[in-house]
């Protein structure tokens, strides 16, 4: 564990807490894409298959449980909770995310570390996470104005993988035989998808103005 990875995990945890705060405090999920939340739940479920079979550390296990639990809780909330689901923008959240799932699954069967269930699911979760934010970014562009908590949620979610890239660079130079091309390339793609959001987020922060994404 190095400082970059720890910073990445904490940033990821903050993004989840900000989203939970938004939904709990405002009893609303307006501006949040249910499809992105469903994709993230699938990412964690397919990546942490070895949750009970491969114990790394208490920290590792706890964080996996937090990510799986929170993503499922948010999906449940947005689908079932009487007040929250009323605020879900169904007609705006129209990204065909099933195509993302299919494309990532096909790619994972072709490009993986080993053609085993565990490695194919792991590669699938890596590819899917890289594109999981797309429905959310599309929804933000369609809905124009972004409330603070939603903006912060997306910002921290994007920042965490950037820390992981620093972590992979650090490990590449400090550990022998450390290569993680699949995760690294997917991580770069994932972070790049946030590039324009980061730009508009920085502008709104600099001008102390409301975050506006161009339609």
């Amino acid at each position: 564990m190095n400082i970059f990875r720890f910073a990445g995990d904490m940033t990821h945890l903050i993004s989840v807490l900000v989203l939970l705060l938004k939904i709990y405090a405002t009893k609303s999920c307006s501006g949040i894409s249910l499809k992105t939340q469903e994709l993230y739940a699938l990412v964690f479920l397919s990546r942490y298959l070895d949750l009970f079979t491969n114990y790394i550390s208490l920290y590792n296990t706890l964080m996996k449980l937090v990510f799986i639990g929170s993503s499922l809780a948010i999906v449940w909330c947005m689908r079932m909770h009487h007040a929250v689901k009323r605020s879900y923008d169904k007609e705006v959240d129209t990204f065909r995310h099933y195509y993302l799932v299919l494309a990532c699954f096909v790619l994972a069967t072709l490009v993986n570390e080993q053609f085993t269930l565990r490695e194919v699911c792991w590669a699938f979760s890596i590819y899917l996470e890289a594109v999981a934010i797309l429905p959310q970014l599309v929804l933000l562009q369609r809905s124009g104005n972004v409330d603070n908590l939603t903006g912060q949620y997306v910002f921290f979610l994007g920042a965490y993988r950037a820390f992981y890239i620093l972590n992979w660079i650090y490990r590449y130079f400090t550990e022998q035989y450390f290569t993680r091309w699949i995760a690294c390339i997917a991580g770069i793609v994932q972070t790049a998808l946030y590039a324009d959001f980061f730009y508009y987020y920085f502008i709104s922060w600099k001008n102390n103005a409301k975050l506006q994404l161009p339609a």
Binding site: D50, N54, M63, F67, E113, R118, W122, A183
Partner: peptide
């Protein structure tokens, strides 16, 4: 690959 080492991250 060392499977354990390979999946030590989140």
């Amino acid at each position: 690959i060392d499977a354990e080492h390979h999946h030590d991250e989140l």
